[in-house]
Design a protein around this nucleic acid. Structure first.
Lengths: 112, 112
DNA sequence: ACAACTACTTTGTTTTACCAAGTAGTGTAA
DNA sequence: TTACACTACTTGGTAAAACAAAGTAGTTGT
Protein backbone atom coordinates (compact mmCIF):
# COMPACT_ATOMS: atom_id res chain seq x y z
CA UNK A 1 0.00 0.00 0.00
CA UNK A 2 1.05 3.44 -0.93
CA UNK A 3 1.52 6.21 1.63
CA UNK A 4 1.68 9.15 -0.76
CA UNK A 5 -1.77 10.39 0.18
CA UNK A 6 -1.01 10.16 3.88
CA UNK A 7 2.09 12.27 3.31
CA UNK A 8 0.07 15.19 2.00
CA UNK A 9 0.46 18.16 4.23
CA UNK A 10 2.39 16.20 6.85
CA UNK A 11 5.63 16.56 4.93
CA UNK A 12 5.47 20.33 4.90
CA UNK A 13 5.13 20.50 8.68
CA UNK A 14 7.98 18.03 9.20
CA UNK A 15 10.34 19.97 6.96
CA UNK A 16 9.51 23.22 8.72
CA UNK A 17 10.04 21.56 12.09
CA UNK A 18 13.46 20.29 11.05
CA UNK A 19 14.48 23.76 9.87
CA UNK A 20 13.27 25.27 13.13
CA UNK A 21 15.74 23.15 15.07
CA UNK A 22 18.67 24.55 13.12
CA UNK A 23 19.58 26.23 9.88
CA UNK A 24 20.06 23.52 7.28
CA UNK A 25 19.93 22.71 3.57
CA UNK A 26 17.95 20.42 1.29
CA UNK A 27 20.21 17.44 1.00
CA UNK A 28 20.70 17.30 4.75
CA UNK A 29 16.97 17.58 5.41
CA UNK A 30 16.50 14.64 3.09
CA UNK A 31 18.77 12.38 5.11
CA UNK A 32 17.24 13.72 8.31
CA UNK A 33 13.82 12.63 7.07
CA UNK A 34 15.22 9.28 6.02
CA UNK A 35 16.63 8.77 9.49
CA UNK A 36 13.20 9.41 10.94
CA UNK A 37 11.68 6.68 8.80
CA UNK A 38 10.61 8.51 5.67
CA UNK A 39 12.71 6.35 3.45
CA UNK A 40 11.36 6.64 -0.06
CA UNK A 41 11.51 10.38 -0.39
CA UNK A 42 12.95 11.68 -3.63
CA UNK A 43 14.71 14.98 -4.16
CA UNK A 44 11.96 15.96 -6.55
CA UNK A 45 9.57 15.68 -3.61
CA UNK A 46 11.54 17.69 -1.08
CA UNK A 47 12.87 20.61 -3.08
CA UNK A 48 9.46 21.88 -4.21
CA UNK A 49 8.41 21.89 -0.54
CA UNK A 50 11.35 24.15 0.30
CA UNK A 51 10.54 26.46 -2.61
CA UNK A 52 6.94 26.66 -1.42
CA UNK A 53 7.85 27.36 2.22
CA UNK A 54 10.23 30.06 1.06
CA UNK A 55 7.71 31.65 -1.27
CA UNK A 56 5.17 31.75 1.56
CA UNK A 57 7.65 33.53 3.81
CA UNK A 58 7.98 30.71 6.37
CA UNK A 59 11.69 30.22 5.76
CA UNK A 60 14.51 32.39 4.46
CA UNK A 61 17.41 31.37 2.29
CA UNK A 62 21.18 31.95 2.30
CA UNK A 63 23.68 30.49 -0.15
CA UNK A 64 27.02 29.07 0.95
CA UNK A 65 29.75 26.97 -0.57
CA UNK A 66 29.99 23.29 0.27
CA UNK A 67 33.35 21.66 1.09
CA UNK A 68 32.46 18.66 -1.06
CA UNK A 69 30.02 19.55 -3.80
CA UNK A 70 28.06 22.31 -5.48
CA UNK A 71 26.71 25.34 -3.62
CA UNK A 72 24.23 24.81 -0.78
CA UNK A 73 21.10 26.75 0.02
CA UNK A 74 20.76 27.10 3.77
CA UNK A 75 17.28 27.72 5.11
CA UNK A 76 16.20 29.13 8.46
CA UNK A 77 12.73 29.63 9.90
CA UNK A 78 11.14 33.09 10.06
CA UNK A 79 8.85 34.49 12.75
CA UNK A 80 5.95 33.90 10.41
CA UNK A 81 7.16 30.35 9.96
CA UNK A 82 7.23 29.77 13.71
CA UNK A 83 3.65 30.91 14.03
CA UNK A 84 2.60 28.78 11.11
CA UNK A 85 4.33 25.73 12.57
CA UNK A 86 2.66 26.15 15.97
CA UNK A 87 -0.68 26.39 14.25
CA UNK A 88 0.12 23.42 12.05
CA UNK A 89 0.95 21.28 15.06
CA UNK A 90 -2.38 22.06 16.68
CA UNK A 91 -4.37 21.22 13.56
CA UNK A 92 -2.26 18.10 13.05
CA UNK A 93 -2.87 16.85 16.57
CA UNK A 94 -6.59 17.46 16.29
CA UNK A 95 -6.84 15.53 13.02
CA UNK A 96 -4.74 12.66 14.35
CA UNK A 97 -6.79 12.53 17.53
CA UNK A 98 -10.03 12.35 15.56
CA UNK A 99 -8.67 9.71 13.22
CA UNK A 100 -7.30 7.60 16.08
CA UNK A 101 -10.69 7.63 17.71
CA UNK A 102 -12.21 6.10 14.58
CA UNK A 103 -9.38 3.83 13.48
CA UNK A 104 -8.15 2.41 16.76
CA UNK A 105 -11.46 2.06 18.57
CA UNK A 106 -12.23 -1.40 19.93
CA UNK A 107 -14.76 -3.37 17.93
CA UNK A 108 -17.37 -5.76 19.28
CA UNK A 109 -15.48 -8.75 17.99
CA UNK A 110 -12.20 -7.75 19.63
CA UNK A 111 -10.92 -9.81 22.49
CA UNK A 112 -10.58 -7.77 25.64
CA UNK B 1 -5.00 27.13 8.67
CA UNK B 2 -6.47 24.63 6.33
CA UNK B 3 -6.55 20.91 7.06
CA UNK B 4 -7.54 19.68 3.61
CA UNK B 5 -4.09 18.36 2.80
CA UNK B 6 -3.85 16.53 6.10
CA UNK B 7 -7.15 14.85 5.32
CA UNK B 8 -5.78 13.22 2.18
CA UNK B 9 -5.73 9.49 2.55
CA UNK B 10 -6.78 9.62 6.20
CA UNK B 11 -10.42 10.09 5.29
CA UNK B 12 -10.54 6.92 3.21
CA UNK B 13 -9.31 4.79 6.12
CA UNK B 14 -11.73 6.41 8.54
CA UNK B 15 -14.71 5.79 6.28
CA UNK B 16 -13.72 2.16 5.77
CA UNK B 17 -13.26 1.73 9.51
CA UNK B 18 -16.74 3.11 10.20
CA UNK B 19 -18.28 0.75 7.65
CA UNK B 20 -16.40 -2.17 9.19
CA UNK B 21 -18.15 -1.58 12.50
CA UNK B 22 -21.57 -1.93 10.91
CA UNK B 23 -23.36 -1.69 7.60
CA UNK B 24 -24.27 1.93 7.05
CA UNK B 25 -24.99 4.60 4.44
CA UNK B 26 -23.47 7.88 3.32
CA UNK B 27 -25.53 10.37 5.21
CA UNK B 28 -25.06 8.47 8.45
CA UNK B 29 -21.31 8.16 7.92
CA UNK B 30 -21.21 11.90 7.49
CA UNK B 31 -22.76 12.57 10.89
CA UNK B 32 -20.59 9.84 12.38
CA UNK B 33 -17.50 11.67 11.13
CA UNK B 34 -18.87 14.96 12.41
CA UNK B 35 -19.34 13.43 15.85
CA UNK B 36 -15.71 12.37 15.82
CA UNK B 37 -14.56 15.91 15.18
CA UNK B 38 -14.43 16.12 11.39
CA UNK B 39 -16.86 18.97 11.29
CA UNK B 40 -16.44 20.69 7.96
CA UNK B 41 -16.94 17.71 5.72
CA UNK B 42 -19.24 18.25 2.76
CA UNK B 43 -21.28 15.62 0.98
CA UNK B 44 -19.27 16.26 -2.14
CA UNK B 45 -16.21 15.09 -0.19
CA UNK B 46 -17.67 11.91 1.27
CA UNK B 47 -19.65 10.41 -1.58
CA UNK B 48 -16.73 10.20 -4.00
CA UNK B 49 -14.82 8.31 -1.29
CA UNK B 50 -17.61 5.73 -1.10
CA UNK B 51 -17.72 5.39 -4.87
CA UNK B 52 -13.98 4.83 -4.90
CA UNK B 53 -13.99 2.25 -2.10
CA UNK B 54 -16.80 0.41 -3.89
CA UNK B 55 -15.06 0.49 -7.25
CA UNK B 56 -11.91 -0.92 -5.64
CA UNK B 57 -13.89 -3.78 -4.14
CA UNK B 58 -13.35 -2.78 -0.50
CA UNK B 59 -17.05 -2.32 0.20
CA UNK B 60 -20.26 -3.69 -1.31
CA UNK B 61 -23.52 -1.88 -1.82
CA UNK B 62 -27.20 -2.65 -1.19
CA UNK B 63 -30.11 -0.31 -1.78
CA UNK B 64 -32.94 0.03 0.70
CA UNK B 65 -35.82 2.42 1.25
CA UNK B 66 -35.56 5.05 3.93
CA UNK B 67 -38.47 5.72 6.32
CA UNK B 68 -37.95 9.44 5.89
CA UNK B 69 -36.37 10.36 2.58
CA UNK B 70 -35.06 9.07 -0.71
CA UNK B 71 -33.52 5.63 -1.12
CA UNK B 72 -30.39 4.78 0.86
CA UNK B 73 -27.28 2.94 -0.30
CA UNK B 74 -26.07 0.71 2.50
CA UNK B 75 -22.41 -0.26 2.39
CA UNK B 76 -20.66 -3.16 4.09
CA UNK B 77 -17.00 -4.11 4.13
CA UNK B 78 -15.67 -6.99 2.02
CA UNK B 79 -12.90 -9.44 2.89
CA UNK B 80 -10.64 -7.49 0.58
CA UNK B 81 -11.66 -4.34 2.41
CA UNK B 82 -10.76 -5.86 5.77
CA UNK B 83 -7.30 -6.72 4.52
CA UNK B 84 -6.86 -3.30 3.04
CA UNK B 85 -7.95 -1.64 6.26
CA UNK B 86 -5.52 -3.66 8.36
CA UNK B 87 -2.74 -2.71 6.00
CA UNK B 88 -3.85 0.90 6.01
CA UNK B 89 -3.73 1.06 9.79
CA UNK B 90 -0.17 -0.22 9.83
CA UNK B 91 1.03 2.30 7.26
CA UNK B 92 -0.91 5.04 9.03
CA UNK B 93 0.67 4.27 12.39
CA UNK B 94 4.13 4.18 10.89
CA UNK B 95 3.70 7.55 9.19
CA UNK B 96 2.22 9.12 12.32
CA UNK B 97 5.00 7.70 14.43
CA UNK B 98 7.65 9.12 12.12
CA UNK B 99 5.95 12.50 11.98
CA UNK B 100 5.50 12.67 15.75
CA UNK B 101 9.18 12.03 16.21
CA UNK B 102 9.98 15.08 14.14
CA UNK B 103 7.13 17.37 15.16
CA UNK B 104 6.87 16.72 18.88
CA UNK B 105 10.54 16.25 19.67
CA UNK B 106 11.87 18.40 22.46
CA UNK B 107 14.01 21.30 21.32
CA UNK B 108 17.11 22.68 23.04
CA UNK B 109 15.24 25.75 24.19
CA UNK B 110 12.43 23.78 25.80
CA UNK B 111 12.13 23.79 29.55
CA UNK B 112 12.50 20.38 31.12
C1' DA C 1 -47.88 25.31 -2.21
C1' DC C 2 -43.70 25.82 0.18
C1' DA C 3 -40.03 25.09 3.22
C1' DA C 4 -37.02 21.85 5.74
C1' DC C 5 -34.81 17.75 6.20
C1' DT C 6 -33.07 13.55 4.27
C1' DA C 7 -30.05 11.42 0.62
C1' DC C 8 -27.22 10.87 -3.38
C1' DT C 9 -24.81 12.89 -7.83
C1' DT C 10 -21.85 15.62 -10.82
C1' DT C 11 -18.47 18.97 -12.50
C1' DG C 12 -14.58 21.71 -12.02
C1' DT C 13 -10.65 23.55 -9.19
C1' DT C 14 -6.58 23.38 -6.30
C1' DT C 15 -3.00 21.34 -3.83
C1' DT C 16 0.46 18.21 -3.33
C1' DA C 17 3.55 14.10 -3.66
C1' DC C 18 6.08 11.64 -6.96
C1' DC C 19 8.72 10.21 -11.12
C1' DA C 20 12.09 11.07 -14.41
C1' DA C 21 15.48 13.52 -16.25
C1' DG C 22 18.78 17.10 -16.28
C1' DT C 23 22.68 20.35 -14.59
C1' DA C 24 27.00 20.76 -11.85
C1' DG C 25 30.83 20.53 -8.52
C1' DT C 26 34.23 17.42 -6.10
C1' DG C 27 36.88 13.33 -5.11
C1' DT C 28 38.52 8.51 -6.14
C1' DA C 29 40.13 4.59 -8.62
C1' DA C 30 40.77 1.86 -12.96
C1' DT D 1 42.43 10.72 -17.99
C1' DT D 2 38.46 8.77 -18.15
C1' DA D 3 34.88 7.10 -15.70
C1' DC D 4 32.30 6.61 -11.71
C1' DA D 5 30.34 7.93 -7.23
C1' DC D 6 28.72 11.21 -4.22
C1' DT D 7 27.04 15.71 -3.25
C1' DA D 8 23.40 19.29 -4.38
C1' DC D 9 19.77 21.72 -6.67
C1' DT D 10 16.21 22.26 -10.76
C1' DT D 11 12.43 21.39 -13.84
C1' DG D 12 8.36 19.35 -16.20
C1' DG D 13 4.74 16.29 -16.28
C1' DT D 14 1.30 13.08 -13.95
C1' DA D 15 -2.05 11.33 -10.72
C1' DA D 16 -4.64 11.36 -6.56
C1' DA D 17 -7.69 13.36 -3.45
C1' DA D 18 -10.42 16.93 -0.84
C1' DC D 19 -13.51 20.53 -1.61
C1' DA D 20 -17.02 23.95 -3.30
C1' DA D 21 -21.12 24.56 -5.63
C1' DA D 22 -24.90 23.19 -7.79
C1' DG D 23 -28.33 19.94 -8.93
C1' DT D 24 -31.90 15.95 -8.42
C1' DA D 25 -35.44 13.72 -5.45
C1' DG D 26 -38.25 11.71 -1.73
C1' DT D 27 -40.72 12.73 2.71
C1' DT D 28 -42.86 15.50 6.33
C1' DG D 29 -45.04 19.48 8.41
C1' DT D 30 -47.25 24.10 8.08
Amino acid sequence: MDDTQLMKGILEGCVLSIIQKEETYGYEILSSLENSGFENLGEGTLYPVLTRLNKNGYISCRKAKSPLGPIRKYYSITEEGKNYLENFKQVYQKVIHNANQILLERNEGDLC
